[in-house]
């Protein structure tokens, strides 16, 4: 983490730094201690880091999971059956009320348009993009990305 922070000096790199730190971590969230370290590094206060973390949806600060599935449920995907896919996915992974499933290794997040409308319905699993989905295809992808 120190190493990542040392790449950045200016405070404007806060978002970049958080991206990099989260990318390196198995658990996609920051501890209070890490938030404090980031704040100190950029000479800002912890609330400001928290303010940024809680503003951007990609910085999940509440749950620790291995993989994040971002499933698009905005109009283009919606009319192509995204809603059913979401229900299926949550059932399939056995998600709890925090949308964590697959024995705690997947967070299912319904997200806004991913710009994959030409292959709707679509999902992103961590950094990877999958389109033209149906239940079977989605199931297969999940298994391959466990």
């Amino acid at each position: 983490m120190e190493e990542i922070l040392n790449r950045y000096r200016d405070r404007s790199y806060l978002i970049e730094a958080i991206h990099d730190i989260l990318d390196e971590k198995d658990e996609k969230s920051l501890t209070d201690d890490e938030i404090k370290k980031i704040a100190r590094h950029f000479k800002i206060n912890t609330a400001e880091v928290l303010g940024v973390l809680t503003f951007y949806t990609m910085f999940s600060v509440k749950w620790k999971v291995k993989h994040t599935i971002r499933i698009c449920n905005s109009p283009a995907c919606y009319i192509k059956g995204a809603k059913e896919l979401v229900t299926f996915l949550k059932n399939y992974l056995g998600c709890d009320k925090n949308n964590i499933g697959g024995n705690g290794s997947f967070l299912v997040e319904e997200v806004e348009c991913l710009g994959l409308c030409d292959v709707a319905p679509a999902v992103m699993i961590d950094d990877k993009v999958f389109g033209n989905l149906n239940k079977e295809k989605l199931k297969k992808i999940i298994e391959e990305n466990k």
Binding site: S74, P75, A76, E112, C113, G115, L116, C117, D118
Partner: peptide, 11 residues
């Protein structure tokens, strides 16, 4: 920052 639903031209 292309985020308008249904838009994928900039991508």
């Amino acid at each position: 920052d292309e985020g308008e639903p249904g838009t994928f031209k900039d991508r």
